[in-house]
Design a protein around this nucleic acid. Structure first.
Lengths: 114, 114
DNA sequence: TTCCATACCTTGACATCCTAGGCAACCTCC
DNA sequence: GGAGGTTGCCTAGGATGTCAAGGTATGGAA
């Protein structure tokens, strides 16, 4: 299906996946497969989340109460598991974004060092 | 001793440690304990690498040929294990920096999504 | 002499991610 | 009507990397 991905295996860093998922779901309820597509889309085709990474992560995230899920009939008539961001999840997203900002800033400083 | 660390568990993301170490050593040969200090310093006290993370990482990095080591007499008269960046290591540093840039760019895009 | 900082290292637990599968429903095209 | 592709869910197993916690030793300061 033409994955290609600019030949560079950009692989996510451990810990960033949760933030990406929360962000994707924050744009509106979504099912698992759709999350992968949305992340790919909003990252400009740069990030490709594997199913084997996503589903365990979703389970984990739901356990922590950051998202809630319910089975629904999708637009195509098929049953899909819709995930919705909870209030706690929205707060967590902000925490993770702040944490990322701090790290990115720190790394930037290190990069400048001579 | 005053560690403090702004109470925020800034914890590194898996995968960034190698880059930090390579960068630290790229500024001049250094021993393990000194690497921790240099990273703390050039990150503006934002990054605190644990010894339990550093030494395994150093071993790993040396096995891959990115640094070489030799025992020397430190300034204080004590024996220290000095690590030096190799040519391969310098190339690897560039690879990791480029990889970080890609990821940071992708994350930034995701952050902007509405 | 007691304590702290420096300096090395290991062990074991833990979380997260990826590879590689499996299952099923739906669609299109031949 | 059958084949194959896409959507959609999931799991098992292994690899990796990090951390918490400990151990050892030297040297200087109090």
């Amino acid at each position: 299906m033409a994955k290609q991905k600019t030949d560079q295996k950009a692989d996510l860093l451990q810990g960033t996946l949760d933030m990406l998922i929360l962000k994707a779901v924050s744009l509106g309820p979504l099912h698992g497969y759709g999350i992968i597509q949305r992340i790919r889309q909003i990252s400009g085709e740069m990030l490709e989340v594997e199913q084997g990474s996503l589903y365990p992560a979703l389970y984990r995230i739901e356990q922590r109460g950051w998202v809630s899920s319910q089975w629904e009939k999708g637009e195509t008539g098929r049953r899909v598991k819709l995930y919705t961001l909870t209030k706690v999840g929205r707060a967590q997203l902000e925490v993770e974004e702040a944490s990322w900002d701090r790290l990115a800033l720190a790394i930037a400083k290190v990069r400048q060092a001579t």
